[in-house]
Design a protein around this nucleic acid. Structure first.
Lengths: 293, 293
DNA sequence: GGTTTAACCTGCATTTTTGCAGGTAAATTT
DNA sequence: AAATTTACCTGCAAAAATGCAGGTTAAACC
């Protein structure tokens, strides 16, 4: 016996007609009819007389209504209990690129945790990425749109990368008027075989023929190298803008745009806390459009 | 939210492991897993931690078990109420060929109604047949096996038809030693264009070239014609055996076997009274094999 | 530390359920 | 009496659920 058939039975008993009950159940009247049929078969009894005026309960049908109403009360109670628990609590594991994590999200995250005090966040900001399909995280921000998996994916924002160097590096060094001048300079970039996303292979596109002399897989390390005067580095604008000592170089010639994609595992997408965090990330990126692009 | 998911949840909470719960539910463990997943999604909460030891209830999961156990108690109560009502009562409409109905079933039916006093029977014995798919009857005995429809069909029995005439008809009439001698006799048969089943078109097969002189669509009328000495008639053995004045003619040459099929509408096949009547019909035909064949 | 095992999960083929179009029958209307 | 309306039901195509084979992973074992 299927409990769902009992639910359908109760709706039909109240509506008195298949069409009305089916509308309330958001299903086709034929489906509703089949549920009733199956229940009658399973119980070996007729529960409704089919009349021109609609479905009329038999004596046995009448006897069952009260019982099933009790089941309904319980199911409503269950949804209330769960809904209360859904008052935005629990832990979220969020995997993000390290630069975005520590330079953009971390300084803003208190706005979220202040608003939802019962939510706990694991902010995993790494050079590398954590896999949502592999359940390493509930939610992730990626540089590439994933093509497969039980994921809910949407674009979060575009962001801009540009060439920067510290004031100290530029002082006393040959002037830079075009990319050709960079040949006499020290460049900082990613370790080529440790690049974790093809989207970070922008060096060759932007500065063809030039090879970074100092490399790190970590964008944060690259930032610190540039700040300390080690050389010029292509950095996201949102990172460089936090360091006043970094100057923009060749703004018209060196520029590339990339995107961040928000990825949520299907299993948790409807959790209240997940929805709130998604909304929060969307809001902060929209507010910071001028430092992202 | 699906109530059936609650039932699955309860089973898993008791078993502690997917495989065990799935076996109890007579479904694949993957299906059981998907039901749990769907419930967690619908409620927006995790109800089980997946551990190496199996599914372990979360605090919320624990809180729901008691509630759902209450629903289970009610559903078991519902099945008990319906089972009590299943104590073989209600009305059955049974459509049968007229001869079988009035000459074979009617004289025996009191054995059934004595045993199940709360069951009411509409025995529709007609020359023609009543349609189970059209809901003209819950159950029917047909000469042909139906090929389509939401029916449960099985063969009830074979029966034999032979040539009979009354003693009065035969006395003073030319002797009959072979079918050739029948040319000088009066034959009784069906009205050809009113035959309601192809299985009753046996006259031409058995007595080729001979044409019945006196015809009726009713096998009972044909029986009465034969008894009154109007002529020779091909009759089912189970009918002729009730009339001692009818003599068997050409037993080695004139014989045909046909079958009766029991047909039940799927919607009522599990009703206790339907099952009992089916069993009864099976029993009386088995007991009367010597007068059927 | 390497291998094995147990519990669960993914992807694809198969089965079941559902929705849609149209049919049926009885009651109502003309 | 014929036509219309209303409520439900059948058959087929589409969608969803289920079963099956094999993969994954963390814990247990050697």
């Amino acid at each position: 016996m299927h409990w769902d058939d009992l639910k359908v039975f109760l709706t039909v008993s109240r509506a008195g007609r298949l069409e009305t009950a089916a509308a309330a159940l958001k299903q086709d009247a034929t489906t509703t009819s089949r549920h009733i049929r199956r229940l009658e078969q399973d119980l070996g009894q007729t529960l409704f007389e089919r009349t021109r005026r609609g479905h009329v309960l038999t004596d046995l049908g009448e006897a069952l209504v009260r019982q099933i109403e009790e089941m309904e009360s319980i199911s409503i109670g269950i949804q209330e209990i769960a809904g209360r628990n859904q008052t935005v609590s629990g832990r979220i594991r969020l995997g993000v690129p390290e630069g975005l994590g520590s330079q953009f999200i971390a300084p803003r995250l208190s706005h979220f945790t202040d608003q939802w005090p019962a939510v706990e966040i694991d902010l995993i900001a790494l050079s590398g990425y954590v896999s949502v399909p592999k359940r390493e995280a509930d939610m992730s921000i990626l540089l590439t749109r994933p093509k497969a998996g039980r994921l809910k994916v949407r674009k979060l924002t575009d962001y801009s990368l540009r060439l920067y160097a510290s004031k100290d590096y530029l002082k006393g060094r040959p002037a830079i008027a075009s990319t050709r001048d960079l040949e006499q300079h020290t460049l900082i970039g990613y370790v080529d075989d440790l690049v974790y996303s093809p989207q970070l292979r922008y060096f060759e596109d932007i500065l063809p023929g030039l090879v970074p002399r100092i490399c790190s897989p970590s964008i944060l390390a690259q930032t610190e190298l540039a700040r300390s005067g080690a050389g010029l580095c292509i950095l996201p604008k949102f990172i460089a803008s936090r360091h006043p000592e970094l100057k923009l170089v060749l703004p018209d010639e060196v520029q590339v745009t990339r995107s961040f994609w928000l990825v949520v595992h299907q299993d948790v997408q409807d959790f209240a806390r997940i929805r709130h965090l998604s909304d929060f990330l969307t809001a902060i990126t929209a507010d910071a459009r001028n430092i992202l692009n």
